[in-house]
Design a protein around this nucleic acid. Sequence first.
DNA 1: CGCGTTTACGTCGTTCGTAACGATA
DNA 2: TATCGTTACGAACGACGTAAACGCG
Lengths: 326, 326
Amino acid sequence: MTLNQLRYFVAITDAGLNITLAAEQVHATQPGLSRQIKRLEDELGFLLFGRKGRSLTALTAAGEQVLVHSRRMLDEAANIHALAANQRGERRGRLTIITTHTQARYVLPTAIAATRREFPAVSIRLQPSAESEILARLARRGDELAIISTSGAVPGAGIAVPLFRWRRVVLAGKDHPLGQRRKAPTLRALSALPIVSYESSRRPESSLRRAFDAAGLPLQLAMTAHDADLIKTYVRAGLGIGILAEMAVAPEDTDLQVLPAPAALPECITWAVLPRGRVLRNFTLRLLGLLAPQIDPTDVRRVVAGNAEPAWPAPPAWQELRHATA
Amino acid sequence: MTLNQLRYFVAITDAGLNITLAAEQVHATQPGLSRQIKRLEDELGFLLFGRKGRSLTALTAAGEQVLVHSRRMLDEAANIHALAANQRGERRGRLTIITTHTQARYVLPTAIAATRREFPAVSIRLQPSAESEILARLARRGDELAIISTSGAVPGAGIAVPLFRWRRVVLAGKDHPLGQRRKAPTLRALSALPIVSYESSRRPESSLRRAFDAAGLPLQLAMTAHDADLIKTYVRAGLGIGILAEMAVAPEDTDLQVLPAPAALPECITWAVLPRGRVLRNFTLRLLGLLAPQIDPTDVRRVVAGNAEPAWPAPPAWQELRHATA
DNA sequence: CGCGTTTACGTCGTTCGTAACGATA
DNA sequence: TATCGTTACGAACGACGTAAACGCG
């Protein structure tokens, strides 16, 4: 049993049982993979894949089991390599961040730019994803970090580190009467108007929808998008009233009226979610520190390694954070 | 990075940084290990060991880290091998049981004999250990299973499966007046007499000692031993009154008076403790099933694999169990 | 000097890529 | 016939053991 054999094995399963495709992805030839799988099966004494004719049709039940342990071994191998890279001060690497559009567009840029200045050879890959996919992707391999928001609840998968608290804002067109009193509109007032907000507000468990439900008021979603810029565009076009994250309001949005959200809309928290048990590269921790200065990188390492229980400092409000890091 | 390199690496640390000794234990030559370690260090880019002259003096800090992940990788490799052995119905293997003398002498024999009848090629190694060492040894490698007793509390390390409940008995010499009423003596009565019991009773947190402490009575330990047979021998010799586990009373002990223990001495539970995350061989589960028929082997597998939360059936009393399995 | 590690050298086994072959839709 | 997996072959690499050299107590 070789690490390479296991690497080929999971590559084949990840490629949907297509050996040729898997071979490309591990930078090897197809006969090489075929042979190693055969060797592995010979050594273990049973088939990993079910075959019909010459092509692979499915993992066997035993193969499923082996796959689980193989992935763990490869994860640990990757951990040792990450450890080594940190140890010798390696400054190259890759960091994949899975996040939503709003975080990517309004929260991350300064921190990512600063990280890149410090580690110019690190390739940072932003992977905007729908909220529902984010936690699922974390389980995959790679040096991944998810940045997501919830209204209070701690995300289930991985190690969740609270970065900052934020509230929603209400956006109205320049001459919309809602803005005339310059204070937060009531939930009831919003309920009477067409709303433009995030796609995720369509989900019945979204905190926006639940706030309206709790008040017994209807929520009229005129339009939804993943993208805060689109939302603002359509508010400008007069499609309705925007409800979005305060981070998404930029200085150049002077043509819009920005009002606080009703108190009934709960405060949200943005979290960094890290895969449990993974050795983090130095630049990953650096990015986290830049995003939320209250976080102690050493604590993060300990908790992710499973050597300490999470005990995070209370996250600051977004406004404080932005002033502190500006 | 090769699995062999990691194997050599942990062998060297387990051999106390003696490469020659480690080489014997992994059935290889000393230069081979030296070379592979050098290669590994070259690849990782830093030293795993501190050296003085030509000899290894200590693990480096980075080496400690690598060691942790290396062990995990090798554990997973062993898991795959165990999985494979199970899958192809391999009936050979080794099972090391870490336990106390009383369990080894009075509880395990029938179950072990039955397991050996079913798996004649399995070599079972009984490793009697003091209670304090048992849990520490579980962390080491190999197909290990610990059988230990506590007075109620769940053992901390690994997965603890409750096997059965038992009580203590009081042993007195044939003509000792304590036995004349043929019922359980009081704690106060025992307190006035010299006691012969287990070595572990010397520990202040032992349940025997705590029962006397709670009653405000002194415990006079005339003699202690790890070994129930020794205790009986010294009771016969008139050294004092024996207090030991009910399992340790054999039919041939007709020359001793056997009395129930005072109710103030709490009931104990014997547990099987399994290392978390290890794939168990079929014969290990078989032995567990023979020890405690109420246990569902599939549940044990699931819980040890981390795929289910422990929810064990209530353990029967030793007497019921013995009659059920006899 | 004895113990333990490193270096040198020759052999063997394994892996890999290229190329040809086989099966399947 | 195109696609994908298997088998065949030759080259290159790497691991291993033996034997000798080196350092340290």
